[in-house]
Design a protein around this nucleic acid. Structure first.
Lengths: 128, 128
DNA sequence: TTCATGCTTGCAAAGTTTTGAATATGTAGA
DNA sequence: TCTACATATTCAAAACTTTGCAAGCATGAA
């Protein structure tokens, strides 16, 4: 019964690609709209070459696609729903957060999910 | 705005734990019911010490919990819903499968999701 | 042409994870 | 007690990933 193992292997590769904070941030940025490498580099505050390396890995695994516009390379998510799936992962980190308050998670979810409530108003604690 | 980065980092750690075929298989096995280390080792056809290593990593990250029963350690998922979330990842691999037919994925989904249709009958190709 | 811009690629060093084998611990029964 | 069994832990080697930097292509404008 090796197809179980094959599928587990493919799934593991999927998880490996996502398992990097920069790449998660990239997916988050691209979720809102397509962007060129420099805008992404500015948004994440990383050297463009690093961003390009991540993008090329993600391109190889068909997470993103690029299109040229003059000298810019405009990247977009091939399956934007992947971003929703990633946010669902937040359900499983509420327990093991190190230096991350429930508020951070709530506001992260808002940032990903809805618009951009920038910083949540300083509530003492959230439970509602 | 560093909470974005913090959350991305935590998410990345979550993904890293899952990003190993053996650990995915372990979650798959534990989804059905709690099991001891030897049963898991037999099911995955791996040395028990390797399974124990994976379990101890997963235990450290609160994916699993163990309970003693005589000399056996019975493991179970802390949040069984994580298994459902992992299966959803299958939606994103249908494109980039290497040596993995749509049927393999369909039957993998069945194995994880429903009961155990063991091996899907040899259909030429599936589209319905 | 030449130049600047925007991105990509290559490479070695640093860091991390995985693996296998050996050794240790804890429990049950003789 | 001693022995067998079930699992955990430790350690080093191998495999893999990430990083930083430098050099390399394209494109567009002068």
């Amino acid at each position: 019964m090796p197809s179980r193992n094959l599928v587990a292997k493919e799934l593991a590769e999927l998880f490996k690609i996502v398992a990097h904070p920069d790449r998660i941030r990239l997916i988050e940025e691209l979720r809102a709209s397509q962007k060129d490498v420099n805008s992404l580099a500015d948004a994440l505050d990383l050297p463009a070459s690093r961003v390009s390396q991540h993008l090329s890995l993600m391109r190889a695994h068909r997470f993103v696609e690029d299109e040229r516009e003059g000298r810019k390379h405009i990247y977009k998510l091939v399956q934007p729903e992947i971003a929703d799936w990633i946010v669902e992962g937040l359900d499983f980190i509420e327990g093991r957060m190190r230096g991350l308050s429930p508020r951070d998670i709530k506001s992260a979810r808002a940032l990903w999910t809805g618009g951009d409530p920038a910083s949540t108003p300083p509530t003492t604690d959230v439970n509602s």
